[in-house]
Design a protein around this nucleic acid. Structure first.
Length: 578
RNA sequence: GGUUCCAUAGCUCAGCUGGAUAGAGCAACGCCCUUCUAAGGCGUGGGUCGAAGGUUCGAAUCCUUCUGGGACCGCCA
């Protein structure tokens, strides 16, 4: 049941009935405050001019024309012509009972699409740092939401496993191995390894030349270089996998489709672009001039697909990736989660790819950008100036902090239980702090905010869930077997009930816009409404009659299911106790 | 120079395709634990939505200009 679309259909029919034009706007939204009902229909004002009638008169006619049976308790016209929709508690109770009996919480699947989601994509030359958090976490939440709605999702981890820097790295690795060091040991800290290689590249006689030679050899498929490269990449991937595991992210090895995977297709891609006249030679390079993105004077934007020396660039790789995703993977939609700095690049890439027919008109190509991570001083985190925070270390710190907090509290939890909880709480807090922000602009990375466990945070949501579990333990009731009629009496019950039925609205928006923060907001409000209900509406206390008790248990149960479902989509774990 | 994104409470952020008195969290200040877990609840204070015009029944939201900031712009990704 989707309340919004259900009501909207009714009102659209009513508009037709009163003789409004076919495509009249039909704005129906959640009400902004309690006194204005649950939803409001604001279409009357806009129709005033078209129908040449007073907006309030139109509103009255709509109210008379709209056909409801038992869904609505009352419709009232207010202000200039708002129609406030008050849903009937009995009808809402019926919907909730059905939702509670349904595994999918009565959320119908969308018509399935094949969706490619390109996310995480770390550079294997270095260790994952806090800058990789957003793409990894947001991407994973979007992926899980799309899957929940019935889509076929293909995760693509477009790892940076190719490029000139690997010449330097494999040369350094070669020397380390020659000095009898094991690859795992030499590469135990990628950051150190990279720094050491860079120092040698800059300072050591002959090293830079050897590195450059190795790049050429690597690109021409020299077996020795390939072995070194594979060794390096393999160890680096293992580092990433550890982070993914800690983060509770669903990315696996089979989702890796690194830049190197497209090597063989780069030349054919450029050849096709040349053949179609989309790129031309300019100053020795293969270039597309894009009139679509010209400046005021009419100078076209420049997009290089092949360097003057014949080398390829990320533009080439991205175009080849598009061909693969559309031709082989048959993507209906492609979502790419990278930082906002690459917005122009992807806009250009799409224009070129569409011209070349790599993307068909019915296929979408959506860059989902987000801002950079800034330090407390508002300046960007720099990667090689010592300011880098390794992702693995951030996560460990989060878990430690959570453990300290848990150990301060009195409880009957065992040491093992505490450890599991500390992990879920700490990791959840880090993920939620990031997921709950949508801004495409930069955002301030603050250790304390990110690891805070109070207010609008993951622990708050997890806590709400455990409170419900605690009620069921105490009641000795099997939550699954619970079958009772619901009665929504207290205001807190009604507010919670409507919120529960709006879950579908939140996740549909996440799937269409790629914005998990909408789901975060929803879950937080749901948890918050539950907390108020919990304080105001006793369940197991003396003097609560059986029907009320069972009704409230049902409400609590559906809240728990919804919280758990939503948190799962966000990649945040729940627990029975905390 | 060009393109583009942004500016909302002391701080960090929401605000859906324009809708009624702009919302949270943190911080501050009050209450509420012999009663279902106080990582909680209830309440108070705090905003000329960067500025000025415009569009209209109605603007934080759309358009223009300005101010301030960020990012990007032919061989890095």
């Amino acid at each position: 049941m989707n309340l919004q679309t259900y009501l909207l259909a009714k009102f659209k029919a009513a508009l037709v009935a009163i003789g409004a034009p076919e495509d009249s706007p039909a704005p129906l939204s959640r009400s902004t405050r309690a006194g204005f009902g649950h939803y409001q229909f604001n279409g009357a004002m806009a129709l005033s001019k078209v129908l040449k009638q007073k907006p309030r008169d139109i509103a009255d006619k709509i109210v008379a024309a709209v056909e409801f049976t038992d869904e609505v308790e009352k419709l009232e016209v207010a202000g200039p012509g708002f129609i406030n929709i008050h849903l009937s508690p009995a009808w809402l109770a019926k919907q909730l009972k059905q939702a509670n009996a349904d595994e999918r919480l009565l959320i119908e699947a969308e018509s399935a699409q094949t969706v490619v989601v390109d996310y995480s994509s770390p550079n294997l030359a270095k260790e994952m740092h806090v800058g990789h958090l957003r793409t990894t976490i947001i991407g994973d939440a979007v992926v899980k939401t799309l899957e929940f709605l019935g889509h076929k999702v293909l995760r693509q981890n477009h790892m940076g496993d190719w490029g000139t820097q690997f010449g330097m790295l494999i040369t350094h690795l070669n020397d380390k191995l020659a000095a009898d060091s094991a690859a795992e040991t030499a590469l135990s800290d990628l950051e150190d390894f990279y720094r050491a290689a860079k120092v040698r590249f800059d300072d050591e006689d002959g090293f830079a030349d050897r590195a450059r030679e190795n790049v050429v050899k690597l690109q021409s498929g020299d077996p020795e270089c390939i072995v070194l490269w594979k060794t390096f990449v393999d160890v680096s991937i293992k580092h990433s996998e550890e982070v993914y595991k800690k983060l509770n992210v669903s990315l696996k090895r089979e989702h890796i489709m690194g830049e190197s995977a497209y090597n063989d297709d780069l030349a054919p891609t450029v050849a096709e672009l040349k053949q179609k006249g989309i790129v031309v030679e300019d100053q020795g390079a293969q270039v597309a001039f894009l009139q679509e993105l010209a400046d005021k004077e009419g100078n076209p934007a420049v997009y290089i697909v092949q360097k003057s020396g014949g080398g390829y660039l990320y533009a080439t790789t991205d175009l080849a990736a598009i061909r693969y995703r559309n031709n082989v993977l048959k993507a209906d939609r492609t979502l790419i989660l990278t930082d906002a700095r690459q917005a122009l690049h992807f806009k250009q890439t799409e224009i070129v790819a569409r011209k070349a027919g790599f993307i068909k008109p019915e296929q979408s190509y959506e860059h989902c950008p987000f801002g950079m991570m800034l330090g407390n001083d508002g300046k960007p985190f720099k990667t090689r100036t010592g300011g880098t925070v390794k992702l693995a270390e951030l996560l460990d710190e989060a878990v430690e902090r959570a453990a300290v907090l848990i150990n301060k509290r009195e409880s009957d939890l065992t040491a093992d239980e505490r450890e599991v909880i500390a992990n879920k709480v700490g990791i959840g807090a880090v993920k939620y702090a990031d997921l709950s922000k949508n801004r495409t602009t930069d955002y301030i990375f603050n250790w304390d905010t990110m690891l805070s466990f109070e207010g609008n945070t993951a622990p708050y949501l997890q806590y709400a869930y455990t409170r419900i579990q605690s009620i069921f333990r105490k009641a000795g009731v099997n939550a699954e077997a619970l079958q009772a009629d619901m009665q929504l009496q207290a205001e807190q019950e009604l507010v919670l009930a409507v919120k529960l039925l709006q879950y579908v609205e939140a996740i549909k928006q996440v799937s269409s816009d790629g914005t998990p923060h909408v789901l975060c907001t929803y879950i937080y409000e749901l948890a918050s409404f539950f907390m108020s209900f919990y304080e105001a509406c006793p369940i197991l206390k003396d003097g609560i009659d059986e029907p009320t008790k069972n009704s409230r248990l049902m409400l609590a149960q559906l809240t728990a299911k919804t919280l758990k479902s939503g948190l799962e989509l966000l990649g945040i774990e729940t627990m029975e106790k905390m």
